[in-house]
């Protein structure tokens, strides 16, 4: 089993350091901002001054997870679709327009996708396995699959999460993003996964990713069948925009994009919602269906033991 021990989310919701994120959820309007903790309480000012919003969110969420966990992480697995967009844009614009021979080094150094994972390792002084996964809207699911494989290999404490940031340029691109009827947002959600239960009760039972699925309903039903379950067993289904399966009336459904806004790490925030919902209710199974991009399907099953 893969128990979820600690969660930290920084999002447009009041989600950081709260016992039950479900009790605080509100549908986002077009104008909302990241509700950020005081980063200075987590990151030294000398380091903080160089960090873009996505790095601040990812590092702070990871530090909060570490603070809630007694042991050091044996592995760190990070998902990000678009990486450090702000630094990438800054570097590319400077590169394109600069008239001088030298370019500002900070934006270049921090423009790569794996800067988030790297900053987490530096911030936590952690020298363990560190991997970044970039797979568009299923980046988090792929990072989660890696985390579960780390546990299968014998690791006891794995940090897994996902972070993406919004920049104004994305608004120009939004008509090309699918779906486009949600506000563009930023967010980071991180989890500590362990094979040991201790005080945890909610597990990641299974996660899968399908590329170019021709029959999403069939894929989801087969995924559940592999767990000896059917759609009738699912008490909470979280989905992105359109629910691709028919559920019975007992199943609570929730379009997580209405609460996370649109960014490619939104399914990580959906897992936070699903975890807290199971933990604070008598529901046993929650399914997260992430087909924010129609050609990539992420399916995550959480269960309460």
């Amino acid at each position: 089993m893969y128990y979820i021990h600690s969660i930290a989310s920084i999002s447009h919701q009041d989600s950081f350091n709260v016992s039950n994120v479900c009790s605080k959820l509100e549908k986002l309007g077009q104008e909302s901002e990241v509700i950020a903790p005081n980063y200075k309480e987590y990151v030294p000012p000398a380091s903080l001054r160089r960090l873009s919003p996505v790095l601040r969110m990812g590092l702070t969420a990871s530090i909060e997870c570490q603070n809630n966990t007694e042991k050091e992480f044996d592995a760190i697995s990070v998902g990000t679709a678009l990486g450090c967009l702000r630094d990438t844009e800054k570097f590319l614009v400077t590169f394109h327009t600069a008239t001088s021979d030298f370019l500002s080094p900070t934006a270049f150094i921090q423009s790569t996708h794996n800067t988030i994972g790297g900053q987490i390792s530096l911030g936590l002084k952690n020298h363990a396995y560190n991997m970044t996964h970039t797979q568009n809207n299923v980046s988090f699911e792929v990072a989660l699959m890696d985390a579960l494989m780390c546990i299968d290999e014998g690791k006891k404490q794995v940090l897994v999460g996902s972070a993406d940031e919004q920049i104004p340029f994305l608004e120009l691109m939004q008509p090309n993003l699918i779906p486009d009827n949600y506000p563009l947002t930023s967010g980071a959600s991180f989890f500590v996964i362990s094979p040991e239960a201790s005080s945890a009760s909610v597990c990641v039972q299974a996660v899968a990713v399908r590329f170019n699925p021709t029959d999403k309903t069939g894929e989801i039903e087969q995924f559940l069948a592999n767990q000896q379950l059917t759609l009738n067993d699912i008490e909470l289904a979280l989905y992105a925009d359109q629910l691709p399966v028919e559920t019975n009336e007992k199943t609570e459904t929730l379009n997580f994009l209405e609460y996370s806004g649109l960014h490619y790490s939104a399914s990580a925030f959906a897992m936070h919602i699903a975890h807290d919902s199971l933990k604070h209710s008598d529901k046993r199974y929650a399914l997260i269906i992430n087909d924010m991009c129609s050609d990539k399907l992420g399916i995550t099953l959480l269960s309460k033991q």
Binding site: A46, F102, L103, S104, P105, T106, I109
Partner: peptide
């Protein structure tokens, strides 16, 4: 630090 020294050159 050393990265700032590079920023000074820029």
């Amino acid at each position: 630090d050393s990265i700032d020294a590079l920023e000074f050159i820029v």
